[in-house]
Amino acid sequence: MLLELKDVSLAYGRIVALHGISLTVDEGEIVALIGANGAGKSTTMRAVSGLRPVLKGSISFDGQDITKMRADLRVIRGVSQSPEGRGIFPGMSVRENLEMGAYTRRNRPEIDKDLERVFGLFPRLKEREKQSGGTMSGGEQQMLAVGRALMSRPKLLLLDEPSMGLAPMLIQQIFDIIVEINQQGTTVLLVEQNAQQALSRAHRAYVLETGRIVKEGTGAELLHDPAVKDAYLGVA
């Protein structure tokens, strides 16, 4: 088991956003979290990456308790997040943004190899290498955010809404790339509004409602679950 959340609760001030969430991610999996706006999907991601302290419960990663570990140290352990809203550094070039992804690493030849890998996955980024991150289109920024998250060579890749704001064709493309990244050996935990895509690409998934996990199963099971269909897939 690569990642395990046990009974994790988290609050923003007095507003409790997660009420005792438990979930696991095994090595090699793509696991999706789906749910409506405000269900706690992004909050769960923030708990895993360490951006928000948890109120109670525990998080373990790769055999180590990381519940109280600082976010920057989790990166060194192998957790990498492409954040909600992409979080591109606007005053840095595409290349510099990617270099930021490799901030914790020192081995230059290995970093260059991963740069080539990211440019291979997203040829568009290679074309825009010198352009400033802030002037890129939404789709390009999304590619950059995913590519940047890969640059730390993570064991676990957290993707927060990778399809947000993208044209349908680009959505297909980015999910194809997520599957490819997974097949190259990176475990993926994915938050998505686009439940159709997420469930058809993920090995397993959890459904969140108002800070609680209400359902779990394989992607295929949930894809055919009438209640899930009703609530999240937009088809009866």
Binding site: R70, L73, F89, M92, E99, Y103
Partner: peptide, 24 residues
């Protein structure tokens, strides 16, 4: 430099800088 980039990252977006492994 790499450290200088870390400084600019924190200046531009401290939260994302932490996600890159920058110790604020």
């Amino acid at each position: 430099s790499r450290l200088g980039r870390g400084v600019r990252a924190v200046a531009q977006n401290p939260e994302v800088a932490a996600l890159m492994g920058v110790n604020k």
